[in-house]
Every structure is written in structure tokens, then in C-alpha cells.
Simulated assay, not measured.
Amino acid sequence: MDMMFRIITGALLMAAFAAHGAPTPPFSCSYWDKKTDNVETLDDCAVLKDGKLVFLPALFAKTQDVDGMSWVGLYDYTREAGLPDADYYVRGPESYLSVIHFDNGPDWFVEGLVRSRQNGKVGYWDDAFNNHIAAKYDYAWQFQEGKALVCTGCKPQGEGEHIGLGGGEWFYIDKNGQRVSEIKSGPF
């Protein structure tokens, strides 16, 4: 699954370059600096190699490491490529997981899982970057007390900073991805 994730990520990045005239690598990034304890910017953060991201050594010398991971935001690249903001948890130059940009930063691990959007769908990964629940939902919330609210067929509604979701089928899943309860209509 990890190899498939990397192939898909690389293909998406290559398509973005071709379609949107994305910036030329190396890419700049935001990161949490271990000396200043603030979000800083690093100009030479990542490059593309054989269609996939490779994070450069300068990043690892500067970034705060929590539980063997660093947080990196590649906002300039994604915005210029016409893509939504992308946050990553990074363990090494070629070991990373793209996670949902949530509440002005990366989604966080809740009950051992974090959300990631792959091919337009949301699924859940563990802190070793292993896929735990396949990316098959149009949107999914973080787990709470062993279950998470998900939707299929829901669509963004509204404009501006806060966009809601409407329509589709809404239900809760457990940490095995099994449907555990229905709801009559979407909450948003």
C-alpha cells in the first residue's frame, strides 16, 4: 500500500506541474523550528525525484521532531499549482504522509489515527504511515470514543472561509472501518 501511495502522490504532483505551471523545485515549506519554537519558512525544503517528493537534509536539521515525525507545510507549491494546502508528517527524506489541512495546520492523530485525502477521498492512517481504513469517503471526521462520522456523496456548500457539507449518505464507522450506526441527515 505504501508503494501505491507514493506512486499516486507522484502522479498527482506531476499532473499538477503539467496542468498549472507549478513552481520550480526546490520547494519552500513551513515547519516548526526546534530553536525558535515558532513556525518558520525554509526555501530549500523539498524536490521532486522520479515523480515523488524528497525532503532535503536542511529541513531535518531545523525542524522539531515529535515522536519521530516532523510537520511540513508545502503551501507555496500547492497554491501555485492550484491545489489545496498540503500538510505532511515526515519521518525521513522519502518517508512522508500527506494529511488534511485542518484548523490552520496539519490534522492531528486522534485515537492513533490521522486523516489523509488520497485521490479525492478521505481515509485513516496510523503513525507508521500505514493505511488503516481505506480512503473511500467524501469527508470524514476525527475519531471520538472509537467512532467517526463519515459521508459518501456529500458535497461542499457555501463560500468563504467556512464551507459546509450537504447531501449524501452519513454514518458512523468504527476503527475497523465498519459501519456502526446511521444518521438521518448530514449535520452540516
Rank of each mutant, 00 (worst) to 15 (best):
D127E: 13
V110M: 06
W170L: 01
I133G: 01
D87L: 06
L149V: 12
W141E: 09
D76Y: 12
D174H: 10
G112F: 01
F129N: 01
A140L: 01
L165A: 07
A140W: 01
G120K: 05
M69H: 08
Q144V: 07
F171S: 13
G158V: 07
K147G: 09
V54M: 11
A135E: 08
A61T: 13
C151W: 12
A81M: 11
S95D: 09
Y89W: 04
G164V: 10
L149Y: 15
K62D: 05
P84H: 04
Q64L: 14
N104F: 06
Y75A: 14
V54W: 13
R91V: 15
Y124G: 00
G123T: 01
S98T: 13
V66Q: 08
D107T: 00
D127Y: 06
Y89T: 03
G105M: 00
A81G: 10
G105E: 01
K121T: 02
L83M: 12
P93L: 14
F129P: 00
Y77D: 01
G168K: 04
D127N: 04
Q118S: 08
N104S: 14
I100C: 01
L165Y: 09
F55L: 13
A134E: 12
G158W: 12
A134K: 14
Y139M: 14
K62T: 06
V90L: 05
T63H: 15
G168R: 07
F55D: 06
Y172R: 10
G164K: 14
A148I: 04
K62L: 14
P57E: 10
D127H: 00
G123V: 03
K147E: 14
I100E: 00
L113I: 04
W71Q: 08
G105P: 12
C154Q: 05
A81K: 11
P84N: 09
A86T: 07
L74T: 06
Y88T: 12
S98Q: 13
S95T: 13
G160N: 15
D103P: 05
E169H: 10
H162A: 13
K136Y: 08
F102I: 09
A135R: 06
